[in-house]
Design a protein around this nucleic acid. Structure first.
Lengths: 336, 336
DNA sequence: TGCCCCTCTGTAAACGTTTGCATCCCTGGG
DNA sequence: CCCAGGGATGCAAACGTTTACAGAGGGGCA
């Protein structure tokens, strides 16, 4: 087979014009005679020509690539966000390069990786990366436009939610239905990932209880490990309390699914015997009837992608706080 | 800020050697004096030099990038596979470029995209892409090593499962437990994606019933739309049958989750009143106790990544069939 | 007619690497 | 003492584009 594809020179030779004219014709630049342009375009189609990306990138400085950085793939949040991000860039003609850079640890190495990564992309989306250790700015790592999803970062645009407020709202929903013994199935802080999320959601839970004049019973706060299995285990621990909760707020839907299953196994009906509210609006939450706080990750991804393109076009940095609406479904009901 | 990073020339000037020597020193090539090498390496670290990827790729022809192509992100399967794929390449120092090429439709445009995509990567992983319309080979689209996950493709290595056999096994599991009225919650063929998966799983279901001497009742085959909500709707249709099933095989776990929920809503206990088996081993299947056929997508992704690297190293094309073990959990039990 | 401007095209210099080839120097064996 | 051989280095030509600049030709206007 033709191991080497035709180059712009081949097109030039075939059509009898210079490479400069071919380049202009194929990129719809002005100052090309219509007849010339169509001859060139035809020849290119005929030879099945496609520009060599590296060469054009080297020459132009534009990469037409966006980098997406996440701490780990395999979890729900970054995957979902990537879906939204990717759909936008695919339409806009950008490539999407993904990278699992682990933020802290070897800082020197990270900086070097980041610098090298930058050069391959026109802009960067950070998903839950928490790169900033002690208030560094995005410029410290990247010299490209950056949008951070799920965290705020000096010098970058950001798309975040108010975790504390949303957790408070979730807890208030239970309070409003008359519950007074409210359990918290918490996600633990992640190793090597200095995320404020667990703490913020915990604080929101406390805010709600205190505002309602209730004391926060530490016995009602258990670790659910961010997984469904962990959620199930957490509920069984909660049920061993001297005075078990009548409602549970879970920091993630996955843990809530586990809680629901454990409840069923124990013969507790939801919401009859136990109200459960989650956090995320996981793919399955709607179909399974879980009341939850909707974190529209894919929409946030879409918005992040649009924001990167805006930054590339020179628009200023901006912070966006995404709304987290309460989705009342079928796992919460009035107490008693 | 320094808008332009140091180039290899800067290192050369600082250390007083030629760019060629710098290039060799930094890439650990032989024929560089130890003293020279360490001087160069130090200078590079000092200046925070990182090679310009486009330039080095243009010159060397190696891209150190792997392309991952999937028809659509946002669904469970490709995401999960991407996780596995990415973990391998991240370790091996490859970038991962993702692309949502839609296979059929405008074939000319697809070919052009594919050709252009090729040039950016050293190898390609196709996830459930079903590019081949009438037996085309991988060479028709790509002139790079290709590994296809979930489909077979002439000229490419592949990682697939035997959908028909696995579906048969799932159905046999129900038969072995004494069920004779077995419903099938089917996923419909996907629009614009000529996948044989739905048909194969349907055939496997029929194989099992026929081998057991049962007739296939078309009333027991309903469409679950590949979603949990669709699965729930499917079960309610099945229950309207004159003679409803005592067990259900769902072509995906997500549909099975919907079935389980609908059963609970109708007061049917699983597995007491209704046995349910799924297909996939979704993240949540274990924690929710769903009996299912385990399609270890992330492992398949890992293997796919390793296979691409093997192809790049010149090893021959090979087809791998991945095992799909039965995971007996808590949603299936003996009939009656 | 002369001038200017505008459209179209070509020439050639970037872009920042990698790499084949030539060169220089040093060491060791005959 | 000479020469072969090989390690270390430099030179310069790729790699395939983009783009600044120059120039040719033609039309309109004074």
């Amino acid at each position: 087979m033709a191991n080497s594809r035709p180059t712009i020179k081949d097109i030039a030779r075939v059509t009898g014009v210079s490479v400069a004219t071919v380049s202009r014709a194929l990129r719809d630049l002005p100052y090309v005679a219509p007849a010339t342009r169509s001859r060139v375009v035809e020849a290119a189609a005929e030879l099945e020509y496609a520009a060599h990306p590296q060469a054009s990138r080297l020459a132009s400085g534009r990469t037409w690539t966006i980098g997406v950085v996440a701490p780990q793939f395999g979890t729900w949040f970054p995957f979902r966000a990537l879906g939204g991000i990717n759909s936008v860039f695919a339409k806009a003609g950008y490539d999407v390069l993904i990278s699992m850079m682990t933020a802290p640890g070897d800082r020197r190495r990270f900086l070097n990786d980041a610098r090298s990564f930058c050069r391959r992309v026109d802009g960067i989306v950070l998903i839950d990366t928490f790169v900033s250790v002690e208030g560094d700015s995005a410029d410290a790592f990247f010299d490209r436009p950056v949008v951070a999803v799920g965290e705020k970062l000096e010098g970058a645009s950001s798309i975040t939610i108010d975790n504390r407020l949303a957790a408070r709202r979730a807890s208030e929903h239970l309070l409003e239905m008359g519950h007074e013994r409210i359990g918290l199935v918490a996600g633990p802080p992640l190793p090597d990932l200095p995320t404020p999320v667990p703490e913020q959601r915990h604080l929101g839970y406390q805010d709600a209880l205190r505002a309602a004049g209730l004391t926060v019973d530490p016995e009602l706060v258990v670790d659910g490990g961010w997984t469904a299995a962990g959620g199930a285990a957490a509920l069984s621990r909660l049920l061993e309390c001297s005075s078990p909760p009548t409602a549970v707020f879970c920091m993630s839907d996955e843990m809530a699914f586990g809680v629901l299953r454990e409840a069923a196994r124990c013969g507790l009906a939801a919401p009859g015997d136990l109200s459960v509210i989650g956090f995320d609006d996981h793919d399955l939450a709607g179909a399974l009837g879980l009341t939850t706080m909707r974190q529209a990750v894919d929409e946030m991804g879409v918005r992040a992608a649009e924001t990167v393109m805006a930054l590339i076009d020179g628009e200023p940095v901006a912070d966006i706080t995404w709304d987290v609406p309460l989705m009342v479904r079928e796992t919460t009901a009035a107490a008693g």
